[in-house]
Design a protein around this nucleic acid. Sequence first.
DNA 1: CAGTGAGCGAGCTTCCGCTTGACTT
Length: 701
Amino acid sequence: MKKKGSKTLIIVESPAKAKTIQKYLGNGYSIAASVGHLIDLPKSRLAIDVEHDFQPEYITVRGKAKILKSLQTEAKKADTLLLASDNDREGEAISFHLKNALQQKNPRLPIKRIIFNEITPHAIREAVAHPLDINLHKVNAQKARRLLDRIVGYHLSPILWKKVKNGLSAGRVQSVALKLICEREASVESFVPEEYWSLEAELQKGKSVFKAMLIEYQGRKPVIKNKIEVLKISDSLKDAVFKVTDVRFTEKRLKPRAPFTTSTLQQTAATRLGFYSRKTMRVAQQLYEGVDIGSGRIGLITYMRTDSTRVAGSALQEVRDFIHKSFPEELPEKSNYYSPGKGAQDAHEAIRPTYVNNTPESLKSYLTKEQYKLYAAIWERFVSSQMIMAITKTVSVDFKVREALFRANSTSIQQKGYQRVLHVLAQREKGKKLPRLTIGEEVANLRFHPEQHFTSGPSRYTDASIVKILEEKGIGRPSTYAPIISVLLDRYYVVRRNKQLVATQLGRIINDLLVKSFPDVVDENFTAQMERRLDEVEENRQEWVSLLKDFYGDFKKQVDYVMDTLESVKGVMDEETEYTCEKCGRPIVKKLGRFGFFLACTGFPECRSTRSVPLADCPRPGCNGKIISRRKQGGRGKEFYGCTNYPECDFITQFKPTNLKCPKCGYFLVDKEDKQRGAYKACINEGCNYLHTREAEDQSA
DNA sequence: CAGTGAGCGAGCTTCCGCTTGACTT
């Protein structure tokens, strides 16, 4: 129990968390936030003394001095300090650094560490009642991780500056992500699609028309390579009778899925809502920090950077009460349990609504469209995770027709179960309803539907699939999945095309270099092995210094060797163009700069003339200008496309011009994208209705 | 939501993982 008038200061990482805890603890406690790490290596240099047991040189993170100072003054007012950063490696290190920094100014202040894995009044009071000491082995594991990443990143990047281009970067995580994307790109490109055909029969019973697919021919799965073959089969069955030879029912049990982690939230938001990982995290942050829902601002979801599916006991009780009230039939006897994924550090709960009674509908008017969609997804996923399974029934009807076997399928829902609560996340139903059919019965065959297909190879990564595979391989953390994608895009190693991540020429050059010269470091098992050894450090079975020593020797040797011997490919990225310099007559090349591509004279540095890359001719009659990419001031604004003759010519469009000309009117085509059509090209001329879809492109190719 | 309009780039960059902030694909 607390003494009267005494004051305890608790420091957590997140300001929103501090606010919540303040409400739970009330008088006698003040809660402050460190807002992440305050102490770290300086950005400007390696700051590791490799000669002397890798002693790091830590400094106050730039921009965090104010926070540190205010924590110091807060600490002066307190008679106990409890460090409550997250219960994981990074959190332990934050507490350690805080302790050092705050003890200096308050040598007599008792400082303890407290740990809780969920933000509930019970968990927090328990933690406060049982203060601990900082776990130095855990701190050492974080130190080893931090220094290893610094050593890898700050040695590999300069190689790229020297051999490829200034300003580039490489690292334990981003370079593996790049490698995965490059490897996928290679297999996409080497895949040769093969033609094949399917054959469906359109059948009729009474008023009901349905389709049956050819699934067997001459006793085996049909392999139909071309139109001639498919027509041969359909001709041979022309006057055949379609008689039902078998009717089978199969039941499928569908279990609800676990509540969201960061990774699964990003995946689902990408595939169901079309959000990029960054957008998902931005909107989730808004929901976490809270929205004014009439009765003041409250946090609507639990913390959004988590690797755990664990749910606080109190929240389980609440959701069971809610289901009991709203969907009594769908309440399981016992709550459903989801085991945390392998490698999960489990410092936070799953992502769930803070109050399950805040249904998406009840909040709709207070939320933006995006907030509503994401909140509804989180709410539905959580509530459904504690409901009973769904059961579907599939009826399969077989028609033996001479040497062929046709099958019609239709699936219906037998028991809605957890799917009753899904709206934003609702699954689409497949297969049309079949009429009632019995064995021996004959139906009319209206016509055959032969259809051409091509085997589809591997597909390129999207935000959803790259995050999924990174998590599976243990590469990166919930807080870094979205930034990993961003860094690859920012450095122009990868571009997005139709939501797909496509490696650029630059990305491939860098990946080739890294794979050839540093195969061990960009191997996806490198991180797995590092994690195993970090665990050993945490368990005090290994020294952090020896972990670094084991790695550093060979690595540094290879770095020096590559620096000395590898041939530079600087300038290979420069693309020749048809232009010559207006000032000096030398050829113009296309270069990649910090702000994207630009045209520059090969006479640099004597001739410094540059200009923007023309994307198309200005469509305005009588204007000889070119269309170039422009941005609002500050360079940060949204990209748009305008005429070089501005302000004389004020032509503007938001759609990216292509180098294709409209076959109808000769104006240029632009890239467009919408929900119905996906990505397609259209004519910029408003009077011209020409649409160039991807399908049309595929057929002409 | 609609409107949006420099000039840069070509020596001093870079890592990963915590956090939020500013404003975008």
